[in-house]
């Protein structure tokens, strides 16, 4: 059924076409074939996306090539000041691998005794993950909760509720 004049695409629908949620281009609604106003509006939303992307970094986009060259020179100077790269002797690598294998072997009995039936975070897992990784895992769990339609503001850390 064709849309009437009052059924023009909303801003939300236009945004969904300009920035698809799936990350892949979506089929255009038939309405656009016969509605010049909505076709033009979609063009404007796509143009707005490009403009906001460019404005987002306008301060950098206005840099001259000489300024970029200077920044690159400063980076290379910092690398030269850092001196020779630290290379890890092979012996130390072997010790690290051996230590890791030992931890895994010791952790095996604890994994079998996990009560929940899901892979449990064992002491060996915790040994391999940094605090930052655990923060990321917590964030991912929140993301999963949100993706399943969970409440946006409940039980989220302060930064997620801003």
């Amino acid at each position: 059924m064709d849309r009437t004049v009052s059924d023009h695409l909303s801003d939300a629908e236009l945004l969904a076409l300009a920035a698809p949620a799936s990350g892949e281009p979506e089929p255009l609604p038939r309405h656009l074939l016969g509605c010049e106003a909505c076709s033009r509006a979609l063009q404007e939303w796509r143009s707005a996306m490009r403009e906001v992307a460019r404005e987002d970094v306008a301060e950098l986009e206005n840099r001259s090539s000489e300024e970029w060259r200077s920044a690159e020179d400063a980076t290379m100077a910092a690398i030269r000041r850092a001196g020779p790269r630290r290379t890890v002797p092979a012996f130390r690598w072997a010790m690290g691998i051996a230590a890791a294998l030992l931890l895994v072997a010791l952790a095996m009995p604890f994994r079998r005794e996990s009560r929940s039936g899901k892979p449990a975070a064992t002491e060996s897992d915790m040994a391999f993950t940094s605090a930052a990784d655990r923060d990321d895992d917590a964030l991912l769990r929140d993301a999963e909760y949100l993706a399943q339609g969970g409440d946006d503001h409940a039980d989220l850390p302060l930064e997620e509720s801003l």
């Binding site: 945004l15 949620a21 799936s22 990350g23 993301a143 999963e144």
Partner: peptide, 15 residues
């Protein structure tokens, strides 16, 4: 899959 979830949720919030 997580990336797609974030994109989906971002689209929902913006709408």
């Amino acid at each position: 899959g997580t990336i797609k979830s974030h994109l989906f949720r971002a689209a929902q919030k913006m709408r």
